[in-house]
Write a protein that binds this DNA or RNA. Structure first.
Lengths: 102, 102
DNA sequence: TTGATAGGCAAGTGAGCAGTTGCCTATACT
DNA sequence: AGTATAGGCAACTGCTCACTTGCCTATCAA
């Protein structure tokens, strides 16, 4: 099972959060595709291995799932683990500031 | 404004998440009260200053708000910043596994 | 089969962070 | 006044983590 520690550790890095953003925009990207986007759209000068390690962390957290086809490995987003955050700490209703309850 | 970086960094530490749990159970605790709970309920051998620094990080993330009364400083939970997580990466409906969309 | 593409493994390095220790300030109680 | 309580500030340390470099494996095209 994916523990909370893996989840929050995965979300702690800004580069990994951008990767999640890119996978939200287009799921099923390869490692090189993600590398290109980080470099082009976000001016992130990071090596391929660096991105690969980030993807491994995201996969350990259950936020990314992979499938292999030939020499390609596609990366799919899975936001389901994020649900436990809202379950752990109840979030007040949107569009309304919260009041303290003394 | 509280940036995403502060929020996720605050959530990255397990001790800080436990502090959020304790403030969820009882909001408006003092530093010493929180120290006691970490020690008693969670067997966390951490110094008062250690807890104080954790609270500072949580406050920087907007997850904890404080109010002073005399020599006491009360800490209140504020889960509102957590909302931006669900807003950033749409979470699929509960009680149903997700499908990939190829 | 040779070369090119897509990805993986492992060791090393530098920086950031959790935690401690020591000392200081402010409010309350007697 | 004096003392105990509640909290703050700053420097130091050890460890984790992001990132790199170097080399290796696997699939596909010529």
């Amino acid at each position: 099972m994916v523990v909370a520690d893996d989840l929050f550790k995965a979300l702690a890095d800004p580069t990994r959060r951008i990767i999640l953003d890119e996978l939200t925009e287009k799921s099923g990207q390869t490692l090189f595709e993600i590398c290109s986007r980080l470099s082009m759209k976000h001016q992130l000068g990071i090596s391929r291995q660096g991105v690969s390690q980030h993807l491994a962390v995201l996969e350990a957290a259950g936020l990314v799932e992979t499938r292999r086809e030939g020499r390609y490995k596609f990366h799919d987003l899975n936001t389901a683990p994020l649900r436990q955050i809202a379950e752990r700490w109840p979030v007040p209703d949107t569009s309304r500031p919260q009041e303290s309850t003394p």
